[in-house]
């Protein structure tokens, strides 16, 4: 008598062969191929995202900067960053340097504590943490804090963490392509069917890539032979005005990029 209710009528039921609809909001990653593979089409807000890579500091800005640049105006907390963030380079890609809050902590416990405190702070937009030694229970604690307060949380971990279980909603394995011209992204865990093919993302922002493409085929000579642009100037008295100058070859490439942009 009663018709069987079609399964699709229940929005809360997730069929494992389709991408899930995330409960919270998402923030577009700025990389169209990646958005297509993520549930909801972007980074989940209020959830733990793990990025595994061989060398810390290699791919995270490339992956995260487009989203962070559009994530509002609150502070972005860096906990245990591998190097010093370079404000002019980040602002060139849209992230205002005054939004950065750089927390230098070396002890793993101190990093965890700082992460959790930052997640509980209302104005903070996102937390980027480098936690090579985090345990699953500690990550779960961070995941709870992120979901409770609705913050972006990205945790960078070494490739070896791939074998450990993780409470992360999304796990990505990022590696450089052999040529060094792209980022190869493998989605290890997502709410959806397993992602068979690794994604290829450009390794550089568009302006830099354009610059390299113009200049790439032509290898530059080494400066010992090429550095003749300023040869006419007296030695020992450095060039006073307009100190940073490009050599003419690079300058040509830059000019082309400038007109193209």
């Amino acid at each position: 008598m009663s018709q069987p209710v079609p399964i699709d009528a229940h929005a809360s039921i997730w069929r494992a062969d389709a991408l899930a609809q995330p409960a919270g909001t998402v923030l577009a990653t700025g990389h169209a191929p990646l958005d297509a593979q993520l549930p909801g089409g972007g980074w989940p807000v209020g959830a733990l995202v793990e990025i595994l890579q061989a060398h810390s500091g290699q791919n995270e800005w490339r992956l995260l900067l487009p989203a962070l640049a559009r994530s509002g105006s609150g502070p972005v907390v860096l906990v245990g960053a591998p190097h010093m963030p370079f404000g002019p380079g980040l602002s060139a890609q849209g992230l205002a340097p005054e939004r950065l809050l750089w927390v230098r902590a070396s002890a793993p416990a101190a990093r965890m504590w700082a992460c959790e405190q930052a997640l509980r702070c209302a104005p903070v937009e996102g937390v980027l943490a480098w936690l090579p030694q985090a345990r699953a229970d500690q990550l779960r604690r961070l995941q709870m804090a992120a979901s409770e307060h609705g913050k972006l949380l990205f945790v960078m971990r070494p490739v070896g963490a791939q074998r450990e279980s993780s409470p992360a909603v999304l796990r990505l394995l990022a590696s450089l392509q052999p040529g060094g011209d792209g980022v190869q992204l493998e989605i290890l865990k997502r709410k959806g069917p397993p992602c068979a093919q690794p994604l290829q993302l450009p390794a550089r922002p568009a302006r830099l890539a354009a610059l390299l493409a113009q200049d790439g085929p032509r290898r530059l000579r080494l400066p010992g032979t090429a550095g003749s642009g300023l040869a006419g100037l007296p030695q020992g008295m450095p060039v006073p005005a307009d100190a940073a100058v490009f050599m003419h070859k690079a300058g040509d490439a830059l000019a082309r990029v400038a007109t193209a942009a």
């Binding site: 500091g57 960053a81 370079f86 002019p88 380079g89 602002s91 610059l211 990029v257």
Partner: peptide, 14 residues
């Protein structure tokens, strides 16, 4: 947003 072309040459880590 800075429009200097040279800014594109700046790295993100120093």
């Amino acid at each position: 947003k800075p429009t200097m072309v040279r800014d594109a040459l700046y790295p993100t880590w120093l």
